[in-house]
């Protein structure tokens, strides 16, 4: 197994509760992979484990050939393993430009403040926030905050980007815009793991899907195959529905 990011038997227990149990997978460079699962499946915990927010109970995380199991979040960021938050986390009283410059200055590798600002302007143009560069981050609308979050992460020059529910709270049109942006990011050669609980959103964009349920990886494969997987249907709809589904013999999700 190789890959830019690899998880080997990753587990996490909070007290007696196993939030993540023996999860292994790998991301190949340049891929877009979707990680789905019902609410409470352990998706965000998994992201927190990869980026060093929580220490692992067991297992290993390998990034770009190096063991990064014990890294701190800031080290993950500097290595090129960036993430966005499910609940956006701006620096509220700073301008949009300063927010992105913070990503560039500390997570990327510019030499001077001026370079960081240039970099920040480029990323703002990329996500389409340039006209709002001088407004305070706190006054942005939700879709724009998500864009800001993306720009901030991109300014860190990531190799891998973990997108935690970037589409949550957006309407259909806004989701389409966000997906288009994610495609453009992938076109720049960034490997993307997109975390969602809405299956529909990821199916169209992902080359591969991982399904997490009760902290365990229950299915992995091409989007179509995963959707028709019995275990996945059961996880989302419950055993009773899944059985009825099967009887009807159709698997439109």
């Amino acid at each position: 197994m190789s890959g830019i990011l690899r998880l080997e038997g990753v587990s996490k227990a909070f007290g007696g509760i196993r939030a993540v149990n023996d999860v292994s997978f790998a991301l190949e460079e340049g891929e877009i992979v979707g990680l789905i699962g019902p609410n409470g499946a352990g998706k965000t915990t998994l992201v927190n484990l990869i980026t060093g927010v929580h220490p692992l109970t067991a297992g290993r995380v390998v990034f770009a050939g190096a063991d990064v199991t014990r890294q701190k979040p800031f080290q993950a960021a500097r290595r090129g393993l960036a993430r966005t938050f499910q609940i956006v986390q701006p620096f509220p009283q700073m301008s949009v430009l300063e927010n992105v410059a913070a990503g560039a200055l500390f997570g990327g590798a510019p030499d001077t403040m001026a370079d960081a600002l240039d970099e920040a302007r480029r990323e703002l143009a990329f996500v389409g926030l340039e006209p709002l560069a001088e407004t305070p981050a706190a006054s942005l609308t939700l879709p724009n905050r998500k864009r800001l979050e993306l720009a901030k992460s991109l300014a860190m020059r990531p190799k891998v980007l973990l997108l935690d529910e970037v589409n949550a709270g957006l309407n259909a049109a806004e989701i389409d815009g966000a997906l288009e942006l994610i495609r453009q990011i992938a076109a720049r050669g960034v490997t993307i793991l997109i975390i969602e609980h809405l299956m529909k959103v990821v199916l169209s964009i992902s080359q591969r899907i991982l399904v997490l349920h009760h902290g365990e990886l229950i299915a992995e494969g091409a989007p179509r195959a995963v959707v028709e997987n019995e275990k996945v249907i059961e996880a989302y709809l419950g055993a009773k529905f899944a059985a009825r589904f099967k009887q009807q013999g159709s698997a439109h999700v």
Binding site: F74, A82, F91, M94, F106, G107, M113
Partner: peptide, 19 residues
Amino acid sequence: FGLRCINQNEDAADMVGID
């Protein structure tokens, strides 16, 4: 700059690579 980031949102500061 880093200290101000910490002031406004310490978790986010950590996530952009500030030690």
